[in-house]
Design a protein around this nucleic acid. Structure first.
Lengths: 332, 332
DNA sequence: TATATTTACTTTAACGTTAACTTTAAGGTT
DNA sequence: AACCTTAAAGTTAACGTTAAAGTAAATATA
C-alpha cells in the first residue's frame, strides 16, 4: 500500500495537517518543518492520493472525451490537440472510443459522469434525441464536436464543411470540370448534409442546375467501398469530370479506381479531397484538397471548455467554426 | 450539486446503507424497498460518485496509457485496441501523449500514479534509465510497449521488428534487388537497432557482406525528411536497387522522391514499407509491406494487463511478441 | 506591563461511499 | 414458552485528503 500523509505525520510526530500544508507549500508552515516533511515524503516514496483530494474538492481535474473512432486520423489529431492543452493545465483525459455505436456512446456519457469528470467533449456519431436528452440533464460544462443540435443550446465546435465543399466544387467548376461527383458517407450526420449543401452553393454560384450534381453515397467509410463505388459510378462522357471525395484517405481509393478506369488525371478527371492529411502532399500525384485544421480544432475546443470550467457562472453558448482553405495541387 | 445517497435516504426515511445496498442489489434489501430506492434514484437523477467508491475500495477502474504520439496511426490503432478491451471490462483509459518528450513522459507516470490508476501501459520514447528507475518503485501492474529493458523484469509487448526487417530485406534480395537501402529513424529506440539487425540477418542469410547495407538515418519521422533523404541518398547504378522504408507513411514520401528521380518502380527500384496501413493497398502502385497487427497488439496488451490486475499475486513477467508477415504488392 | 498580533502549528469535520458488524422483529423449532 | 434462525434493516468506522476554525507560544504594540 502506498504511503499516506498519516504515515509521514506519524514518523515526524506532527499532525496530518502539518504534512498536508507543508506539501502544498502553505505559508503556515515554517521552512524547517516543510523541509523535514518534504524529505521524509521523498524518502518514503509518497505520492498524493488524488482520489481523496478530488472527493474533498469536488474537482477531479479530469476531462471526458468521446469520439467515434480514435484510429481515424481526423479524430486522432483532434484528440492530440485536446490532450495537449489540458495536460498543460494539469488536466487529464479519459478517452472513450464509441465505435460509431450510439449505445456505447450513451454508456460512455453515463460512465464519465459517474467518474465525475470536470468537463466533457463529445463527438456524436449521429443526431439522435437520446444523447440530447441525456445531455440536457447534466450539470458539468461540455462541448460538442461537429454537431450543433437546435434542441441543445450549448458550446460546439465544427469545421465549416459547407464552406469547404463550396470551395472544392467551385474550384472544380472553374477549372472546367463539367460533370461533378460527390462521394460522401455518414448520411446520419449533420456534417453530411452540410457538405451537400456546400456543393449546391457552388452550383448556385455558377448558375448550374442542382440536379446536375452527381451524389454517390458510400455506406461505409472505408477504402474498399469508395474504391468500388468509384469503379461503378464515375463515368467520363467526353466532358471533363470532377470528383470530390469525402476525405483524403478515401480519395486514395478513389484515385486508384480512376486510374484503373483509364482516366487521365487531372486532364480528363480532376480529384479533390478533404482534410489535407500528411501524405496528401507526397502522393505520386499530390492531392488537391481542403485543408482542415484538426489539431488547432482540438486545441481550440479544449481552450473553450477550459474557459467554461474555470469561469464562475456559465458563459453564453458559442458555436465555433473552423475555417478551411483550398490547397491546389496536382490532381486538378 | 449532484444527488447523493444521503439525499435519497433522507427522502425515503431510510439509512444511507439501505440506499447503498439497494442500488447494488444486495440481498439484505427487500424487493419492495429496492424498488422504492431505485425509483427515487432515477427521479432525483442520481449517479454514483465513483470517486468516493474508489477511495474506499482502493481501485479506480482506470488504466493509464502513455504513448509518444497519438496521431501516429500506429499508436492510434494500438490505443483503440486497448480502450476496447478495457471498456468491455468496465475500465476507462486515462490517455497521455508524451509528444516524444522524455520529460513529459516522466511527469505522466507521476500523474497517473497520483490518480491511482489500477494499471499502466507505457510506450517509451527512448530507453533512458530515468523512467526505468521510476518504474522500479511503482507497485501497480504495468506493461511496456516495444521496449524490454533488461534492468526491468516486467511484462512487455512488442512487434518483432527484427523479424519483419529480415522478411523485408530477404524479399528484396531474392527479388534481385542488389543495392539495399534502409531508411530509418528513432535511433534512440530499441526498435531501431532491432530493425537494423533484422536487415543484417537477411544479409547473413544470403551470404552478403553486412557493409553493403546502405543505412540512411532520418532525424525526424516526417514525410519531408524521408522525401529529402531519398532524393539525396538513393542512387541507381545500373543494378536493381531495393529500398526499405521505416514505415508505410514514410514510404509515401520515399516513393514520390524515387519517381521524381526518374526511377521506374518496381523494375529499377523496389520499395517495401512497414505497417500495412489502410491506404497502402490502394496507392497507385500498391505498396509491398510488412503487415503489423496493431489493433490486435493493443487488445493483447490490454488482456495481459487485465490478467495481472485481476490475479491475486503478480504473474511471472512475459514478453509478448507480435509476429509479422510480408504482404507482396506492386512496388516489388 | 498588559494587550494585540503573528507564527506555527493542531483539532474537527466533511467529502460520498462501502465493509463489517450490530440490532430488531418476525417466524420457526422443540 | 424458551430458544434459534432468518430477513431486513441500521450503526460505526474507515478510505486519504483538505477547509475552516481553534490554540498556544512568541513577538510586536501601546
Amino acid at each position: 500500500m502506498p504511503t499516506t500523509q498519516k504515515d509521514i505525520a506519524a514518523k515526524l510526530n506532527v499532525s496530518i495537517m502539518t504534512v498536508s500544508k507543508a506539501l502544498k507549500g502553505h505559508p503556515d508552515i515554517s521552512a524547517k518543518t516543510r523541509k523535514r516533511v518534504e524529505d521524509t515524503a521523498r524518502e518514503m516514496n509518497y505520492t498524493v492520493n488524488v482520489v481523496a483530494r478530488s472527493l474533498v474538492q469536488k474537482r477531479t481535474h479530469t476531462i471526458g472525451v468521446i469520439v467515434p473512432d480514435i484510429s481515424e486520423l481526423y479524430y486522432a489529431e483532434i484528440v492530440r490537440g485536446i490532450e495537449m492543452v489540458f495536460r498543460q493545465h494539469q488536466y487529464n483525459i479519459l478517452l472513450i472510443d464509441s465505435e460509431n455505436d450510439p449505445d456505447i456512446e450513451l454508456d460512455a456519457i453515463q460512465t464519465l459522469l459517474e467518474k465525475r469528470v470536470d468537463g466533457l467533449i463529445f463527438g456524436p456519431t449521429e443526431k439522435t434525441s437520446r444523447y440530447i436528452n441525456l445531455l440536457k440533464t447534466i450539470s458539468i460544462p461540455y462541448i460538442l464536436i461537429n454537431n450543433t443540435p437546435k434542441e441543445l443550446d450549448c458550446d460546439s465546435i465544427s469545421i465549416d464543411r459547407r464552406h469547404g465543399s463550396m470551395l472544392s466544387v467551385s474550384h472544380l467548376i472553374s477549372g472546367g470540370y463539367e460533370d461533378i461527383y460527390f462521394l460522401y458517407t455518414f448520411k446520419h450526420l449533420e456534417q453530411s448534409q452540410h457538405s451537400i449543401n456546400g456543393c449546391y452553393d457552388a452550383f448556385d454560384q455558377f448558375n448550374l442546375p442542382r440536379e446536375a450534381l452527381k451524389l454517390v453515397y458510400c455506406e461505409n467509410r472505408d477504402l474498399e467501398t469508395f474504391y468500388n463505388k468509384t469503379l461503378e459510378s464515375v463515368q467520363y462522357n467526353n466532358k471533363k469530370t470532377g470528383v470530390y471525395a469525402w476525405d483524403d484517405e478515401m480519395a486514395v481509393g478513389v484515385y486508384r479506381a480512376l486510374v484503373e478506369k483509364g482516366f487521365s488525371i487531372p486532364v480528363q478527371v480532376g480529384l479533390v479531397g478533404f482534410d489535407d492529411i500528411r501524405i496528401s502532399k507526397y502522393l505520386p500525384k499530390s492531392l488537391t484538397t481542403i485543408y482542415c485544421p484538426k489539431f488547432e480544432m482540438g486545441k481550440k475546443c479544449a481552450e473553450r471548455l477550459l474557459l467554461q470550467i474555470l469561469s464562475e457562472q456559465p458563459l453564453e453558448p458559442e458555436n465555433i467554426m473552423m475555417t478551411l482553405k483550398l490547397i491546389k495541387r496536382e490532381t486538378t
